[in-house]
Amino acid sequence: MKNVAVILAGGTGKRMGAYLPKQFLKIAGKSIIEHSMAIFEKHAGISEICVVIHSNFVADVESIVREAGFKKVTKILCGGKERSDSSLAAIAAYENEKNVNLIFHDAVRPFVSQRIIDDVLTSLAEGKSVAVAIPSTDTIFKLNNVKCIESVPPRDFLYRAQTPQAFSYEIIKKAYDLALKDPDFKASDDCGVVLNYLPNEAIHIVEGDEKNIKITFEQDLATGKDLLI
């Protein structure tokens, strides 16, 4: 099977408040997206890398790939307004290939470990659909429409989602084909699409890591610097 890491980098980083999308901000002298690409470039089980980026920043990614000497980046695609548009761009790009797994990863999670990728690829080789998550250490409140507590779900069954999320090509393509026929389809992450439209497809959890953080706010940059020390 060909294992393709799909680096989802279509966001504009509005919550960060920066002049550049957050994936191009730097930690320890390298852009966040370069850190993310480098992790998958290094992993022996990853066949190639596909980056999905806003059309305004394709040239920036091309420059990073060229200067870093990445050999596995074979496709740089343009995403859309929603995360699902970026996933669909990658799905369309591999439509004519056989025996492909797509491993979707947020570009702004630059500290995913080789161990996590190992576990994801092992699960894929066993024919599983895979999500990465860690147990919730906080009590979670479910609220009603007036923002009062409606219930307190048992914490034992609550996990915090990370990425990668990984599927065989056939599964993720079928799920999105069904989603696009639904007039009420709303953008979701890829696990949500599979869960909603292929409810009989079990999505297995690979345990993540507290270090596999998502760079969302300015203070996360400082945390990221600490993780590289």
Rank of each mutant, 00 (worst) to 15 (best):
M1Y: 14
V4G: 02
A5K: 09
V6M: 05
V6W: 07
V6D: 11
V6F: 07
I7A: 04
I7N: 00
A9M: 00
G10K: 00
G11L: 04
G11H: 03
T12D: 10
G13Y: 04
K14N: 11
A18N: 11
A18S: 13
L25K: 00
L25D: 06
K26Y: 14
A28G: 13
G29K: 10
H35N: 06
M37W: 09
M37P: 14
E41S: 06
H43P: 00
G45V: 11
S47T: 15
E48A: 04
I49N: 01
C50P: 13
V52I: 01
H54Y: 06
F57T: 06
V58G: 06
D60I: 05
V61D: 05
V61S: 10
V61F: 00
R66C: 15
E67F: 05
E67D: 13
G69D: 00
K71E: 02
K71C: 15
K72R: 11
T74H: 13
L77M: 10
G79F: 00
K81L: 09
K81H: 15
D85C: 04
S86V: 02
S87G: 15
L88N: 14
A90V: 04
I91K: 11
A93P: 10
E95K: 04
E97F: 01
K98N: 14
I103K: 02
F104P: 03
H105N: 14
D106W: 05
V112R: 10
R115Q: 07
I116Q: 04
I116L: 03
I116G: 08
S123K: 15
E126N: 07
A131V: 12
A133F: 01
I134K: 02
I134C: 03
P135H: 00
S136Y: 05
S136K: 09
D138Q: 14
D138H: 13
T139F: 08
I140V: 12
I140D: 08
K142M: 15
K142A: 05
L143P: 02
L143T: 02
N145T: 12
I149R: 14
E150V: 09
S151R: 15
D156H: 08
F157A: 07
F157W: 08
Y159S: 00
R160V: 11
Q162L: 08
P164N: 12
A166I: 08
A166R: 08
F167Q: 09
I172A: 12
K174A: 11
A175E: 03
A175N: 02
L178C: 10
A179S: 01
K181W: 06
D182I: 01
F185N: 07
D189M: 09
D190H: 09
C191T: 07
V193H: 10
V194H: 02
L195P: 06
L195M: 02
L195H: 10
N196L: 07
Y197L: 06
Y197D: 04
L198K: 09
L198N: 02
P199R: 07
A202S: 02
I203P: 15
H204N: 14
E207P: 11
E210S: 13
K211C: 14
N212S: 07
K214D: 11
F217N: 15
A222T: 00
D226K: 13
D226H: 14
L228E: 03
I229A: 08
